[in-house]
Design a protein around this nucleic acid. Sequence first.
DNA 1: AATTCGCGCAACCGCAATGAA
DNA 2: GTTCATTGCGGTTGCGCGAAT
Length: 286
Amino acid sequence: MIMSKSSVTAGSDFYEEDASEIRKGPWTLEEDNLLIQYVTCHGEGRWNSLAKCAGLKRTGKSCRLRWLNYLKPDIKRGNLTPHEQLLILELHSEWGNRWSKIAQHLPGRTDNEIKNYWRTRVQKQARQLKVDSNSKKFVEAIRMFWKPRLLEKMKQESSSPSSSSSSSSASIETQVFTAAPSPVLVEHPKPKNISLGNKEEHGDYFTAAGAYSEFDDEYYCYFADLPSQGMMAAAGMDSQDISLSECHAEGVDWFGINHHDLARSSSSSSTFWETDELWQFRKIGV
DNA sequence: AATTCGCGCAACCGCAATGAA
DNA sequence: GTTCATTGCGGTTGCGCGAAT
């Protein structure tokens, strides 16, 4: 049995209300066992009476939450897989903060867990980039940077013999691609037709094929080709090179961020892409 | 070694929706 | 149609732990 933080604090009276019989705070092992036993015998539901009948000095709400988020047998533990992360990003872009609805598409994951993931991982990155996590800017950044990396990671995992992909990964992948075709990260040489005219003050180049950054006299490709027309459509680009300012002019300020900071911080784990070990700058030949 | 800081996550809260009386 | 209890959901809080200083 998994020991929860709360379980090991058995006997703690944190939050415990002296005035009432209702206990609050971390659940003890004994309480967990009582709840498990009762639900196993009588099933879920009618949480208030369940709490009383099981001899738990908890509210029905508290029992329900404990069961659904922690004790239920089919709950999956551990880190979210790239498949699951990708699915969350996709579904959140469609439904917003409808956590329970999103959770329905991730078997074994709870709405609370998904909500926590969004707040601790995704929103953190938005804060670091100083953009609103619901802004178009950030949504585009996720689409351009994060999703391709997740797809790449999924590919790596599926080709690896020690792959731990769940049996549902195929269907998840199908759903993802059906929901919104995502860019695929590929190696990409620096375009020959980059001209000084496209160079921005930060030494960055934006092309239909990707974005390139000049940093310490090296070029880095930090997003890659789109097999589909999605990216260009999203940014209002045609097949010609386009500058950062032109991107801004289209109202898609993808990177209200300093690309050099991104590059520098690739070893400092202070940004979105690196924190999740999803992002690697690709050094390309000059 | 001691202290501080930041993160992850379990659990609480308030409100809305639903259903029974 | 109204009231009240219950359930479900999303937002928020705060504890425990490990990393950094």
